[in-house]
Design a protein around this nucleic acid. Structure first.
Lengths: 193, 193, 193, 193
DNA sequence: AATGAATGAGCCTTCATTCAT
DNA sequence: AATGAATGAAGGCTCATTCAT
């Protein structure tokens, strides 16, 4: 089962969506096509299993990064989160890309993406508080904007295979944006009461 | 030719990527499949033609919005830009989504997306200057972060069919983020010399 | 189209239901599988087309037999009908059998059989009248009994490949049964008023 | 073993031939597929076992009906037989239908059907004698006609799911046909010596 | 005796593309 | 330029059957 999912990831990584056929996956996994179908109802089910795995990995990475006891300033913590996201997206770019594509192509993508986004939003919120609180709870729109812009930037860099993806400068700018935004939210909220 | 591309857009809009077959497009366009192949060497060529058209339309929309002589403050001009982006993405969501997917699925997507992003980055830069300049020229990474976060947020809202997509509150938050980021960039740059 | 149906009949005739694959049919018809699917939505559609054709042929045969101006006595006309049914059932036994099976396996069979049965029932009724009327209109149950017993006997003989299928003795007995039954019905009806 | 056959009948009854897979049968029987193959060499072997069982049950029903000491007139005894046949065909229609189909699909059907038909023919003969004999031994063709028409009518009613299947009127007509036929045979035979 | 994971031949069907008219 | 019937490679999936445990 795990080997089949792994094979699927490899196929996707190497040949993209076009190469992703159940027969190819079975062959690479070293099992018969029948066995594949014993574990996954559907080509789609396999895809979802793969996606779920990737998502959980990403979640874990971000979560672990935030547990880390590095720099506990707002800047430091945002940077930890940004780094985690970048990392989560860098391993097996093509596979991940293909998974996202395939998922979106069927409408199942959003539900699977949602948890990650929610997690990121919550993390941002948490980060904003800390020792000397920066912000209160975010509104729905605010949470959306933080999480999606962060993920959007990173994803774009991955998809476009930008050379500066791993650079310090890039990280810096993303951090700057998030921190600036959280600050602005805080300022606006502070004024309101 | 135009009618074929239009048919392609409609098919994509209505049935998504799965419904997008050359035969279906030809039929809807009211021409024979042979004629379609007279104008487009390939299914892919048709897709590219469609994408190019959509891209140009988006570009035009943003450009026009920035020409408009509304509120000329930084806030006002960023808001005009944000609105234009949101609009550019809302007409025919599904078709656009499908185009992006299909394009990405083949690796052609990035080149076609690039001009829009470049344009958005330039617009942000321009906006930052204006009467009383906010910022100087952006670095490559900064331009990337502004354009992709903006587009990323809007795209996510479209794909996830968020109900607040057209709301004032959503627009407000995006503007807040862009302005805060531009401000932070400006501050950092100012300090450095 | 006709050649495809014909090929289907031949395949069914030779190899039974098991050999009836769309690929086999296409090959025997000398067309590509794609062409087959241009004319028939489905494997099932092909089956139905075949069945309809066979049914109409059977109908025609019986109809023509009854038009014939042979012996116009009740006995003579019943015999003409019986003979026609036997003929209708004898050509391409296996193909016919397979069609019926396949059809029944999907529930579509009955509707296609019904017209033949209705026709036979009407024929029996007509025969019962003639110059010196034997019977009035049959009740639903009576019509059913005449038509189905007649068809049932012949079908059984065909399926079991009885050697006496074409014999005079066999024909004689069937005629005897039908005539006796019509007589009994007539007698019962006559008594009732 | 019995439970496997029973499971097969249930599957056939509920889902028709299409649902009749060895795996499905094993699951419903609550045994593993391996066990099923321990008892039946083949899917076909299972089918034959099922058919044989059903056949014997039918045989038993008719036999018992004829033993019964109800009305001993020809009419009364024919009616008892007709009723038994109807009953034999009515339980688990779909399963029975499917069995017949499946059997026919492989050519094994006829041999299994034959005993029932033979039995019916013999019964008809017996009935025709009784206290005041109606007929002598039937010819091969006559026996065939009585048994197959009777079975054919009932089977058709079952397959077509005729609403009058259980009605008195229907029974009446079948009885009328059989009795009329036996009478005609008797008359003809009587004349001949 | 029982289990059930594994097998794989082969079926139905789709759809991009061609080419003679 | 346009047509559209024909093509056929290729893919998803089923299910009877085996065999090591």
């Amino acid at each position: 089962m795990a080997s089949i999912v792994e094979a699927a990831a490899q196929i996707l990584e190497k040949g993209g969506l076009a190469a992703f056929t159940t027969n190819a996956v079975a062959e690479r996994a070293g099992v018969s096509i029948g066995t594949l179908y014993q574990y996954f109802t559907d080509k789609n089910a396999l895809l979802i299993a793969l996606a779920r795995g990737e998502m959980e990995a990403a979640l874990g990475e971000v979560g672990r990064a935030l547990q880390g006891d590095g720099d506990s300033s707002v800047d430091g913590r945002v940077r930890a989160m940004v780094r985690a996201i970048i990392h989560a997206f860098r391993g097996r770019q093509r596979a991940r890309k293909a998974v996202v594509q395939a998922l979106l192509a069927q409408g199942n993508g959003i539900e699977l993406m949602a948890p990650v986004a929610a997690f990121v939003a919550r993390a941002a919120e948490t980060v904003g508080r800390g020792p000397n609180p920066l912000i209160g709870p975010l509104t729905r729109e605010q949470a959306f904007v933080v999480s999606r812009s962060l993920m959007g930037v990173v994803r774009a860099a991955v998809l476009e295979e930008q050379p500066f993806l791993a650079s310090r400068a890039f990280e810096e700018e993303i951090v700057r944006m998030i921190v600036a935004y959280l600050g602005a939210v805080s300022a606006a909220t502070g004024r309101q009461p």
